[in-house]
């Protein structure tokens, strides 16, 4: 899948002239891409260890794609998406526990809430640029963490919420773990699909324009703030859905887990970064690189010495950053350019 052709935001001068692909071609690439990501599931569906990893990979791929909408395409590097994730998780779990509302429906209130809350809290901070904005969103995460601990009646406080195992389709609780994997796969597929449709729509082009040069976009008549707010709403809603799915998979949620920056809030950013920010496929590639690697290293080396597996992970991250400077998507692009050159030479 060539990330260039899907209307990426990669401003490299190597973008082919004549631009955009027709819908049919895009749909084909999308289907092929999804099939490729399905392969690990098909191969390893009987191995519980890998199944669990693949489930998280799909989930976080979807979450990274959601993050990328406002961060990669919109240029607003957020480290506060953990807030939306947590709202989705708490809402879905609470509605299920207290009012027996099926999570299939219960995902929506959280998404809608974040579609409102997201723009609300990001709006005043949009005037902050670059890293300032990132650090301000970190503050959101920290404030929300304290509140989640404090407001025991809403979130269960430090104890959090536990969803007992009552398997039923309508409960979104399954005895067969493969059902969860498929569920997360569908989430990822939907997130990627929305991403593609968005970036080929007018809102998507405006978003890119705003990212490249806000003043020019404003001069061209684009309502910068509206564009950003809409993208935020979409990004936050998708993230909330991911949070709700997470809650139903892991079935025990507490503030420390949901607001953990390295595991959740910052992880969305890291996956997109290494995969290739501002591309459709980048976040997915990043998830497929980091999550299996991290889990595999923990499984193999976790018992060896304290922290050994994480040292290895850190080195892989450093090397990845140094040798794949535009992320995995960028590296794949470079390879394709290389082959094109060699063929035409």
């Amino acid at each position: 899948m060539n990330s260039d052709d899907l209307a990426t935001a990669d401003p490299s001068p190597n973008r082919p002239a004549g631009g955009i692909l027709p819908w049919r071609r895009v749909a084909l690439l999308y289907a092929v891409g999804l099939l490729v990501t399905l392969v690990p599931l098909l191969l390893l569906s009987r191995n519980f260890f890998w199944l669990n990893i693949i489930t998280y990979t799909y989930l976080f791929a979807g979450l990274a794609v959601a993050w990328n909408i406002i961060a990669g395409f919109g240029g607003q590097f957020s480290l506060g998406h953990g807030v939306f994730f947590a709202i989705g998780a708490y809402t879905t779990a609470r509605l299920f526990l207290d009012w027996e509302i099926s999570p299939w429906l219960g995902l929506l209130p959280g998404a809608i809430a974040c579609a409102v809350v997201g723009p609300l809290i990001f709006w005043p901070t949009f005037r902050l640029k670059g890293s300032f904005f990132a650090i301000a969103t970190l503050a959101f995460n920290e404030v929300a963490l304290v509140l989640a601990n404090y407001l025991e009646s809403v979130t269960g406080g430090p104890r959090g919420l536990q969803v007992p195992f009552r398997a039923a389709f309508k409960n979104m609780i399954f005895t067969d773990p493969r059902a969860y994997t498929v569920l997360m796969f569908v989430f990822m597929a939907i997130a990627v699909g929305i991403s593609i449709v968005l970036m080929r729509s007018r809102l998507g082009y405006y978003l890119l324009a705003v990212r490249e040069d806000e003043d020019a976009a404003r001069a061209a008549g684009i309502s910068v703030i509206q564009v950003k707010l809409r993208a935020t709403a979409l990004s936050a809603a998708l993230t909330a859905i991911g949070g709700g799915l997470f809650a139903m998979y892991i079935r025990t949620i507490d503030p420390l887990t949901l607001f953990s920056l390295p595991d959740i809030g910052v992880k969305f950013a890291l996956l997109s970064l290494i995969g290739g920010m501002g591309t459709i496929t980048g976040p997915v590639l990043g998830a497929f690189l980091i999550i299996p690697l991290e889990s595999y290293l923990r499984a193999v080396f976790g018992g060896s010495g304290p922290g050994v597996h994480l040292i290895l992970l850190g080195f892989v991250m450093l090397l990845a950053a140094l040798f794949m400077r535009r992320g995995v998507a960028g590296a794949i692009d470079s390879l394709r350019q290389h082959w094109r050159h060699r063929r035409s030479a």
């Binding site: 304290p306 040292i311 850190g314 080195f315 991250m317 450093l318 950053a321 140094l322 400077r325 992320g327």
Partner: peptide, 29 residues
């Protein structure tokens, strides 16, 4: 680590995160 990445500030962020993990866990080990 950082100078080779001076043109990609986003990758620098990723690299400093890798550094964080390495340093913390080296001391832990």
């Amino acid at each position: 680590v950082l100078q080779p990445l001076h043109a990609e500030s986003n990758m620098q962020i990723f690299a400093t995160f890798g550094l964080l993990i390495i340093l913390q866990n080296a001391v832990l080990a």
